[in-house]
């Protein structure tokens, strides 16, 4: 595998992690997932009689690894229980840890998040926390043993892109685990920017599932993540204030 994404020793050929929320139906979701090239995709845990089932069979048939999340959990205790239920139901000790503070912003509650992360790491989980774009919190999450840190670009589902690129760069500069840009991606340029800022991967759902043409947008995101990764490793030119001719000086 050329340039794989490595999380907790596991290799992935794709640096695009997908979510499954918001898709109009399973058929569109299937085509979008295939087009995205993703190898790791999130699901939520809900009561058995809830709508949105069938996704597990779909992911299995596509050979995509399942990453359960703790979406909807408001405190550490609830998130830990949900993660344990997901481990039991899905036979995976990987979890996208999400502990949000309120419904209006869906921003992570940093205190509950760190507490839950520590408890789940101690319980043997591979923890991928959805976190604020806060370099200090990212460090603390890594210190308690998280396998990656997943800062938001902007609040979930807003499509506002990366509102504080410098913070993402600060997180990347000091992290020794993969940094995965999670939430806020609206279009392909946002995903490319995340990779150019040095992120190891991008996690997105709404930007694809609620696009007018989800399958086409999935293709765009795949290309954007690859382009951003290539550009980052290629080393961009420095930005300059004045023009700098690319053709030779005019003949005298």
């Amino acid at each position: 595998m050329d340039d794989p994404l490595i999380i907790a020793g596991r290799e992935f050929g794709s640096r695009l992690i997908m979510g499954t929320g918001g898709a109009a139906n399973l058929s569109v979701l299937e085509r979008a997932l295939v087009e995205s090239g993703t190898e790791l995709t999130t699901v939520a845990m809900r009561r058995l009689d809830s709508s949105g089932g069938g996704v597990l069979d779909l992911l299995r048939s596509l050979g995509i690894s399942v990453l359960p999340n703790t979406a909807g959990c408001r405190g550490a205790a609830e998130a830990v229980l949900t993660a344990r239920l997901a481990r039991e139901a899905l036979d995976t000790d990987w979890v996208k840890l999400e502990v949000v503070a309120d419904e209006q912003t869906l921003l992570p509650d940093p205190i509950e998040l760190l507490d839950a992360a520590e408890r789940l790491v101690d319980d043997g989980f591979t923890v991928l926390p959805y976190t604020n774009d806060d370099p200090v919190l990212a460090r603390r999450l890594e210190d308690v043993g998280c396998a990656a840190v997943m800062p938001l670009g902007s609040p979930i589902g807003t499509g506002l892109g990366i509102r504080n690129p410098h913070n993402i760069e600060l997180i990347v500069a000091r992290a020794s685990v993969p940094v995965i840009l999670d939430a806020g991606i609206g279009t392909a340029s946002d995903a490319a920017l995340a990779m150019e800022l040095g992120c190891s991967a991008v996690l997105l759902a709404t930007a694809v599932t609620r696009a007018q043409d989800p399958v086409r947008m999935a293709a765009a995101m795949r290309a954007a993540v690859e382009a951003g990764r290539l550009a980052k490793s290629a080393g961009r030119i420095p930005q300059r204030f004045w023009a700098h001719a690319s053709s030779p000086a005019p003949d005298a």
């Binding site: 979701l29 699901v43 939520a44 845990m45 597990l56 990453l67 999340n69 979406a71 997901a86």
Partner: peptide, 10 residues
């Protein structure tokens, strides 16, 4: 008793 399963999300 809570019985949970995986659904579309995230």
């Amino acid at each position: 008793v809570e019985v949970l399963t995986a659904v579309q999300g995230g």
